[in-house]
């Protein structure tokens, strides 16, 4: 590395606690948003995979069109659509309600507060996009389960839904786990696009801190490190799961 870079780094000093706090807040928002998107897209992805494998042509076809549309357009444009476009299509009353403040409170302590419109549209956009990927991975997991498993379950008196729930899906998820964990890492990285529509996650906070401190190197250094820590944690989790699976199937 250039020695002048290191000397500017040292002369500048490190970030003030205030800005480190911003970055940490942003990181927590990144993790929180990622968790929500992972959960929602996995649940929807299962329904989606079931639709594609249902054998009912219109349903499977519609799901196929969904995949093509959402995978072949940039997430950024989709987020712009959810954030700028959808409000123009919604009736006035609904929009006012979505933008308003609602809270679930017991007495004077607030339990849950209605999130900002930025947060809502970012989560909806990320879930809609991610479901197209997560759903396809679950589907290939479903296809990896031998048909005899479902037939055996039916013979044992399971209804088709029960066979899916108790016999096929658990095995499909185990097969789909490695690609799914890769998708979850993508989701975590994709939350960074939320900054374009004002989601106050790590990249947004980094840019904000950079604009105020001009300590580009330090700000992006810390932010990059925080992303790497989060991804590395997921990676460790993935290895652990894979080892457990390998032991089980032996």
């Amino acid at each position: 590395m250039d020695s002048s870079l290191i000397s500017t780094f040292l002369a500048d000093g490190f970030l003030a606690p205030k800005y480190l706090g911003w970055l940490l807040d942003g990181w927590l928002m990144t993790l929180w948003a990622s968790l929500l998107v992972v959960l929602a897209s996995t649940l929807l992805g299962m329904a989606f995979a079931a639709a594609r494998e249902s054998g009912r042509a219109p349903l499977a076809h519609a799901a196929g069109v969904y995949v093509a549309l959402f995978r072949n357009t940039p997430l950024l444009v989709q987020l712009f659509f959810w954030y700028f476009g959808v409000p123009a299509l919604l009736p006035e009353g609904v929009l006012a309600w979505l933008n308003g403040t609602h809270a679930l409170a017991v007495g004077s302590t607030e339990l849950l507060r209605w999130p900002s419109f930025e947060f809502l549209s970012a989560i909806v956009g990320l879930v809609a996009y991610s479901t197209a990927y997560v759903g396809e991975d679950i589907r290939s997991g479903l296809r990896g389960v031998p048909a005899s498993q479902r037939i055996a379950a039916t013979a044992l008196g399971f209804t088709p839904l029960q066979a899916l729930r108790y016999v096929v899906l658990p095995q499909a998820l185990r097969i789909a786990m490695p690609p799914l964990l890769g998708q979850y890492m993508n989701i975590l990285k994709n939350t960074s696009l939320g900054m374009a529509i004002g989601l106050m996650e790590l990249s947004y906070r980094a840019r904000q801190a950079e604009a105020e401190t001009w300590k580009t190197f330090q700000v992006y250094g810390v932010a990059t490190l925080l992303y790497i820590v989060a991804i590395a944690a997921l990676e460790v989790l993935a290895h652990g799961l894979q080892r457990r699976n390998a032991r089980r199937s032996r």
């Binding site: 890492m185 992006y220 990059t224 790497i228």
Partner: peptide, 11 residues
Amino acid sequence: RAIPVLMLIFW
């Protein structure tokens, strides 16, 4: 592969 493309663009 671990950092968002956005971060890499900033860099």
